[in-house]
Amino acid sequence: MIEIRWHGRGGQGAITAAKIFATAAFRAGYTGVVMAPSFGTERRGAPVFTSLKIAKEKIYDISPIETPDIVVVLDHLLLTEADVAKGLKPGGLIVLNTPKPLTAHDFDGMRVAAADVTALSLEAGLPHGVVNSGIIGVLCRALDVVPFDTVLGEIEAEFKTKRPQANAQAARLAYEKTIVEGA
């Protein structure tokens, strides 16, 4: 089982991003998929997270992730606002949207995959601040379990009425520009 926790801000589309990746994983043979948003009283802009578990078999335990293999962070400012690395397994992976060089962050020995998704999404033709398609490209570069073409297909399907090509292009650019560091 692969456990991925997605951190974003209310309204930023972290749930949609997780759902796209979950659907692609399902199509790629991960029949066990459980995606549980943090429940309750989300406000726009406030830190939120969603849990995604994927496995080859049906998942019966839908309780929240405590020890993720991967955390996906849609906004680098969340690194200081929320304890995004909480419970991250030793050797775990942080997938990060950041405009800064990796040396500007302290990741306590964890593996990091990062790209400036905000800028690359603009370049792909998306409005400023839309990063939830692009971040999937960063994840796919560092986690090779779902064919990237399948993921791009799901991105276009999810955004079929909202700039499907630009969203897919954002993921493609992020995939190409991602820097992976660490063990």
Binding site: A22, V33, A36
Partner: peptide, 9 residues
Amino acid sequence: YLLSHTYMP
């Protein structure tokens, strides 16, 4: 929430 808001196939 546990089922109503959780996504599964």
